[in-house]
Design a protein around this nucleic acid. Structure first.
Lengths: 218, 218
DNA sequence: CCAAAAGTGTTGGCGTTACACCCATGG
DNA sequence: CCATGGGTGTAACGCCAACACTTTTGG
């Protein structure tokens, strides 16, 4: 048996919503091959470091962000068939509020990205698909928002992710029925109109809502 | 940066349905640590071998099976914190008809397994969870059956996976509406009763049925 | 008082569930 | 002719989608 040892990479699909569109954070590749192409930020896992820790570290190094939602996507690997040498790539996706990204981050529309290096177009497509699926039965989309947020903010996120307008009354009824939100005593007063109630993510059952049998879409 | 190279393992959750119960194929561990414990069969990925290929090869080596449904589950890795040395473990699950396993395979109830070595109890639990989820929106459960099969066979599989009895008429209506099955001209005549129509999996759209908006349960 | 976003209930249609009997065969 | 599993239709219910107006504020 020829046991082979390979490097382990983590590659990140970092999603954000900016200007009513789902965006992904990209990085410009400086070396050959694929010089000048865009790619997903990533890096190698170091000694005595878990995969989760490596993913969080790499995200921090590239964006300065801490405590974002990270979820493992898929592992790609064809050890020995890549010009850069043998490795496996474990992909994660992250969900980040647009406001927390530095303004000079290179964001691109996740559903119509530029040409990407290596197999990164596949990785991104899988991330988009997973995010859409999770939108239907989890509260992961709330991670796109800064707390506290209004119900209109939440609806906007779901509309971007599902790519279709939603009914305001139905949306609010369902979202509140989940008991995933916690109302704060404050209101957002912004401009010449009625102030909006502000919510945060309820600390209990933060992500899953399948248990309540409530599904988006509507 | 201390780039580390690690071995890559594939570990397999091999499901089958035998005697009206979801079972998993286990292997007895001969060495320390965890000597005498049960574990998921697995092995190391070799040079120039893709992960999928390695998973298929390891399954073949342990069971003699070819062409079974294999799907990646999750990647575990805490390189450097395991007594056996650094590695990552990429887990897959397989779905196999009970008839294709050799009679002396060690099968155990997947939902109440014996004590497992390492982190394998977690892996198994994730596999069970994933399989249940997929039962609701895919035709993966059909892979538990030998072709051709009857509608009663299919219903039996779904009942075992969902752990609850289903209504015969409703089940048939939904299953046929998927257009995932193809009727064969043969009938199964077995014992003193009306012969049953025999089906096989339709070659088109083999796995997914979300597109038709049809969900199990009933 | 006007503009702009927040907030709020009801109904009709459709899909899902619940339910019981006849059919074909072998022994 | 009897036992066994295969095969079939309908009606009530509950849930979801559709829909429009009032409220609160700042300017």
């Amino acid at each position: 048996m020829t046991l082979s040892r390979v490097a382990v990479r983590v590659d990140l699909v970092t999603f954000s919503i900016v200007e009513e569109e789902l965006q992904v954070l990209l990085w410009r590749r400086a070396e050959k091959p694929f010089e000048g192409f865009w790619m997903l930020p990533g890096g190698f896992v170091e000694r005595r470091e878990s995969l989760e820790t490596a993913a969080a570290r790499i995200l921090r190094e590239k964006t300065g962000l801490e405590k974002v939602y990270l979820e493992q996507l898929f592992t790609f690997g064809d050890p020995g068939n890549d010009p850069r040498g043998p490795f496996v790539s474990i992909t994660y996706y992250a969900v980040v509020p647009g406001s927390r990204l530095s303004p000079d981050s290179s964001l691109y529309p996740a559903r119509r990205p530029p040409r990407l290096a290596f197999h990164h177009a596949d990785v991104l497509a899988q991330g988009v698909e997973r995010l859409r699926t999770k939108t239907e039965y989890s509260t992961v989309p709330l991670r796109f928002l800064d707390e506290p947020f209004t119900l209109s903010d939440v609806q906007g996120v779901y509309e971007v992710l599902l790519e279709r307008p939603l009914d305001k009354r139905n949306f609010r009824r369902k979202m509140l029925a989940l008991e995933a939100l916690e109302e704060t005593p404050q209101k957002r007063r912004l401009g010449a109109h009625r102030p909006a109630r502000l919510f945060r993510v309820s600390p209990a059952r933060p992500y899953l809502l399948k248990e309540k049998g409530i599904l988006f879409p509507f």
